[in-house]
Design a protein around this nucleic acid. Structure first.
Lengths: 238, 238
DNA sequence: GTAATAGTGTCTCTTAGACAATATGCC
DNA sequence: GGCATATTGTCTAAGAGACACTATTAC
């Protein structure tokens, strides 16, 4: 059976998800090695069919995939783009609604999904996706990286890559890793301060063999407001 | 028949399109009065099923809808968002991939689509969609208006609402109509100049009972580059 | 003390916006 | 000239980035 309303055949609808984290000073994406045809044994983004009985919305399906892969059910999740054509899957006309998620590395517990032999973090180097992926997933990943880089400049979504408590240096470092540029410290702090998106946590600090840093936590207060009045301007190279 | 690849039933896939124009100093959207059930006789966005035999991609389907409704086949067209749930259509689980298009008022030739009794321009007043539309189309339209307003601030897409030849005052007026704010004239001109997105047309001018304005045409050169280095800051009210 | 990172302050330069001056058409 | 809109120029203020200074810990 299918649920088609019209006289016309309808394409198969999948949901794929690009899950980013930052770990060991590197931007990483969650990939799986496919356990079924087509593209058996090749790398791909996690994803699957919408389950009409269980998923009430597309976002439900994306959340389900995210939780299946990482065990995480509350984090930053955003619809990326919808890819649909007769060519993108060798089996015929398909539509993939792609999402992208940001998860804090310390919260992830990887498990393999049902059609995946294994799930693992793949490091992203440079600005282009240079490695092969099944279907058009290399294009989807490329688009996701560009969306991430664009939104990081004018929103506060990067906090979702950090643990609950973090220092301003760690926060800045996240920006530098994603953008692959160096940021000016005082400007960054000034703008974080003005944006009012973080709040210092009581007496807590963190150690090293140097001055300890103030810990902060994210404040949800500026919902979807612009982070920076200007777009970020990156530090000049010396 | 259907083309489902999986064991699961797949939702019906539609493409809906939000077509904007600016006419008589007003932002307008193209609506149709539905000629079939459900929502017979109610207002809706133009749209229809993906036709697997004719459309090679989702964008093909959107372009086909756009041309069916307006006769225009080359203009600004961008995927907006994908809406999918069990509830949005009374007939069951559907997915609608929504696009939005900008068309110049002088290029449109309205014709009714196959499932539409009539197509017409509806004026948009204020910042909220206050009138009822079929399905979740009021939400789609609201999202489209917000996307348009957001992108107008940092891209040059507004030129697609103008005729081939236009004056800088007309260009600025488009911004003011979409944003419902007054812009500072000299700042606007300075930035348009720096962005290098328009080029004066040879000796041409346009008349009134006052100094005629230089005519410009759009230059495609800065493909997808940022229009404004800062986001636009609107003129203070006196 | 040194090393290392956290955090702050000052100075300069760019640019948006206010405001006004000038330009050019029609009557 | 008078009116209306086009176009340009000047001044000020806000904010970004360079750079350097101070602060605080471990050793």
């Amino acid at each position: 059976m299918n649920s088609n309303l019209s006289l016309y055949p309808s394409p198969t609808v999948m949901v794929d998800i690009v899950i980013f984290t930052v770990e060991q000073d590197t931007l990483k994406v969650l990939l799986i090695k496919r356990g079924i045809e087509p593209f058996y044994g090749e790398n791909a983004l996690p994803g699957g069919s919408v389950q009409l009985e269980h998923d009430h919305t597309l976002e439900d399906a994306a959340k389900r995939e995210l939780e299946e892969e990482t065990g995480i059910n509350h984090t930053y999740l955003e619809q990326l783009y919808t890819y649909g054509s007769a060519q993108r899957d060798p089996r015929g006309w398909t539509v993939s609604v792609a999402y992208f998620a940001l998860v804090a590395a310390d919260e992830v517990r990887l498990k393999a999904g049902s059609d995946a032999a294994e799930a693992y973090w793949h490091s992203i180097q440079g600005h282009r996706v240079e490695f092969p992926l099944a279907f058009d997933h290399a294009i989807i990943l490329q688009d996701a990286i560009e969306r991430l880089r664009a939104k990081v400049e004018y929103t506060d979504i990067a906090v979702h890559l950090l643990p609950q408590a973090f220092t301003l240096s760690e926060f800045q470092r996240i920006y530098e890793i994603i953008m692959q540029e160096t940021l000016n410290k005082s400007s960054f702090r000034k703008r974080v301060d003005q944006a009012g998106i973080v709040k210092p946590i009581k007496g807590q600090m963190r150690t090293g063999s140097n001055r300890p840093a103030q810990l902060y936590r994210f404040t949800n207060t500026n919902n979807n407001r612009l982070f920076f009045p200007r777009s970020l301007v990156w530090a000049e190279k010396k």
